[in-house]
Nucleic acid binder design. Structure first.
Length: 263
DNA sequence: AAGTCCATCAACCGCCAATTG
DNA sequence: TCAATTGGCGGTTGATGGACT
C-alpha cells in the first residue's frame, strides 16, 4: 500500500521510501535513538522526529511481526481488550512483535465487529475466558522462548562504550538510548537477559568499535558519537566533559554543515 | 471494461504526561 | 514553581486495491 508523498516546510510526509527506511534503520541500529527531534537530521532523512519514531516503532524495529494475526493472537487481543479497553500500548506489550498501531488496526477492522456479534451470545463468555487463560499461558511460553534470540537489538549499543568509569559525558548520551519508548523495544527482555546480552556490551565494548568501517565504507551516517570521536583527536575526554553545551553544539553544528549539508 | 463501493492499514494529528532547565 | 521541550498514546484520515455492479 503506497501512499504518495509531499513536502510541508521541507519535511516530507506520506509513504516512506525504501531509501528512507534503509537510512533510518541503519542509523538507529548503529547509534540508537538518542533524540527523536534531532535524529532525522543525523540520519539524513527529511522527516519529522515523530514520523521517524512511528516508522521505527511500527515497522522497522527488530523482531516486529507483520502479516496475519494467529487465532491465539486474536483471542489474546480480545481478552486483553475486554480487560484493558483501548490501552493499545499496554496490550501491545503483551503481544510480542506487534505494534500498538497494528493491534489497533486489527481491532478496528476485524475484531470489533466480531466481538459485537459474539456479544449477543453470552454463552460464549465462558469459552472465551478459558481461551484467554490458555493464550496467556502460551504467550508466557513464547515470551521466554523469544528471549533466547535477539540478534539485532545488541547492535543498538554498538556506539556505546565507557573507556573509563569517569567518562560520564559519553555514557550520559548513551544512556538516553534506554529511556522512554525503549521499554517497548526491550519489553520482552528479562532483567537477566538484559544483563547478560546487553549490559555486557554496554559496559565493555570499545567506543564505536566499527567507526573505521563506517567511514571507510562510504557510509555517511552521522553520529553524535562519530562527532565526539573525531574531536577526541583534538580534545581529551576531560576537555569534552568540561565543554559547555553551547560550545559543544556549535562544534556539532559545524561538523554537520561540513559533513552533510555541503555534500 | 468502467465505475463505484468498501475494507484495510500506514501515516498523520492533537492531546497529554514526563522531563528538563 | 513554571514554562518549554520531548516522547508517547489514541483517534482519525486518506491512499490503495479488491470486490461488486
Amino acid at each position: 500500500m503506497v501512499k504518495s508523498s509531499c513536502y510541508d516546510n521541507g519535511v516530507k510526509k506520506g509513504a516512506w521510501s525504501e531509501d528512507e527506511d534503509t537510512k533510518l534503520r541503519a542509523y538507529i541500529q548503529r547509534y540508537g535513538h538518542w533524540n527523536w527531534g534531532l535524529l532525522p537530521k543525523f540520519a539524513g532523512v527529511s522527516r519529522s522526529g515523530k514520523s521517524c519514531r512511528l516508522r521505527w516503532m511500527n515497522y522497522l524495529r527488530p523482531n516486529i511481526k507483520h502479516g496475519n494475526f494467529t487465532k491465539e493472537e486474536d483471542d489474546l487481543l480480545i481478552g486483553l481488550h475486554k480487560k484493558l479497553g483501548n490501552k493499545w500500548s499496554t496490550i501491545a506489550a503483551k503481544l510480542p512483535g506487534r505494534s500498538d498501531n497494528e493491534i489497533k488496526n486489527r481491532w478496528n477492522t476485524h475484531l470489533k465487529k466480531r466481538t459485537q456479534n459474539e456479544h449477543t451470545e453470552s454463552s460464549n463468555e465462558h469459552i472465551r475466558t478459558l481461551e484467554y487463560d490458555q493464550a496467556t499461558s502460551k504467550e508466557n511460553h513464547v515470551n521466554k522462548t523469544n528471549l533466547q534470540h535477539q540478534p539485532e537489538v545488541g547492535t543498538l549499543f554498538a556506539g556505546v562504550s565507557t573507556e573509563s568509569p569517569s567518562d560520564s559525558s559519553l555514557t550520559e548520551i548513551s544512556s538516553c538510548q534506554l529511556s522512554g519508548s525503549d521499554s517497548a523495544v526491550f519489553s520482552d527482555f528479562t532483567p537477566q537477559t538484559f544483563d547478560e546480552e546487553l549490559v555486557g556490551n554496554f559496559w565493555s565494548e570499545p567506543f564505536l568499535t566499527d567507526i573505521d568501517s563506517i567511514t571507510s565504507s562510504g557510509n555517511n551516517l552521522l553520529s553524535p558519537f562519530n562527532f565526539v570521536n573525531e574531536f577526541s583527536s583534538q580534545y581529551s575526554c576531560q576537555d569534552l566533559m568540561m565543554t559547555d553545551d553551547q560550545c559543544l553544539w556549535s562544534m556539532m553544528d559545524s561538523y554537520i554543515e561540513n559533513n552533510i549539508f555541503l555534500d
